[in-house]
Nucleic acid binder design. Structure first.
Lengths: 226, 226
DNA sequence: TCAACTATTGACATGGTGTCAATAGTGCTG
DNA sequence: CAGCACTATTGACACCATGTCAATAGTTGA
């Protein structure tokens, strides 16, 4: 366990702490409504899990930061893994809020619009989504399920934007290619937002040109199956 | 800890076991040369780490499978993490063995050839490389370093194949785009080899068309930077 | 044959996680 | 307002995984 700050183990009584700690004896136990307490723990867990990977964040630390007994985490969330999954569940659904109604128009136009929407929602949601390793890694099956479900929604949206939704045959192939494309997009977004090696325009150009190539060249290749 | 087979905790005396276990008392301790013992532990660790993710494989299990005391793992490898990194280090360098000398020719031809080489080496190395989550996740810095180094080699090769090696300006942008492309390739390979949702031809078409799009459209967009 | 060497072991200490009975705020009721 | 039921919260306990290290037992050479 990494102990960066020696003061984090102190009791911190959230935001409704009375400043007169020395004069007035504050209650040794703070009793909140389950919703409040749950939210409080969740907030601190969310922050810590965004700072460091799962294994390096201990429930002891989360409890200390939230100023509660460690057992309370288990009481509200079952176990550490479930708490983590809840954090991920929130992070991965941020970008789903924006469900753009796509206008009619040429493929070019719709791709452009979808890309603007994608980049905008990314710029807002920040780096949370980027650091998730949703790449079919053999990690946690439940974690996998959550990330895949979230990704599927985005992909379905993209399929619609490209006018391939009506394509009844080769459904699976199209989805597979778009899943691969989603990884390009994710990685590209990482280059843009985290590593800052690409400008937004460059990333946009990358995403648009490759997506057009997929729709116009790779997808029509459905006749090349055996 | 997952205990699938109740017999794995038994002593298994590697491959040089004498069959007369009941009659001849085999030595309670088997003393091997450090190289042999190290290799033996490594082999079992490699198998287990390929079957299940890091956290779900305990050193107790590795030691049991190898038929040695758990302390020996620390003696030879320091700690569990270093053992794991050594496994990864081997897995990620498999595909580097094939260093193709690229012929001259049109961009189209060279991309085709590079892609055949890429898919061939993938088909051989199997799923080990695919399940690695090398996506800039904030995991282990050392793990990150290893995977990035391995990936960089592949990317450099691809840059040469595309005839962009001499491009002195926008070096970083080109590399960034190719890193993103590598994720598309990795994900596509996963669809081909693991999920079997794409045929080799379809994947090849996907990779070739998108790569051509990047080289011809995205990369020349270097003048669009601010 | 014996002794130095060292590969190997097993007990110990540490730290993280989950469980659960005991405890102490809180609000209701007479 | 006192007392009581309810339950949010605690802290001690058991369990498991990891790392350390002194003791032990094969092995090799004199």
């Amino acid at each position: 366990m990494i102990q960066t700050n020696p003061t984090i183990l102190e009791r911190q009584s959230s935001n409704l702490a009375n400043g007169t700690r020395s004069s007035m004896a504050e209650p040794r136990r703070q009793r909140l409504s389950p919703d409040e307490r749950r939210q409080q723990i969740f907030t601190h867990a969310q922050r810590l899990f965004n700072e460091r990977p799962y294994e390096e964040v201990s429930t002891t630390e989360i409890a200390a930061e939230a100023g509660v007994a460690r057992g309370l985490i288990n009481h509200y969330f079952g176990n550490k893994r479930e708490l983590y999954l809840e954090v991920i569940r929130i992070s991965s659904t941020v970008s789903e809020l924006v469900v753009a109604t796509l206008p009619n128009g040429s493929l070019e136009e719709r791709i452009d619009i979808a890309m603007v929407w994608f980049l905008d929602s990314l710029a807002q949601s920040g780096s949370t989504w980027l650091t998730l390793g949703s790449g079919g890694v053999s990690r946690d099956p439940e974690l996998e399920r959550i990330l895949v479900a979230s990704e599927n929604k985005s992909i379905e949206l993209l399929v619609v934007a490209c006018g391939l939704a009506t394509q009844s045959e080769n459904k699976e192939q199209i989805r597979a290619m778009f899943r691969a494309y989603a990884q390009l997009a994710r990685s590209g977004a990482r280059e843009w937002l985290l590593r800052k090696t690409l400008t937004r325009e460059q990333l946009s150009m990358l995403l648009v040109s490759t997506l057009r190539a997929i729709v116009e060249e790779a997808v029509p290749a459905r006749n090349s199956r055996r």
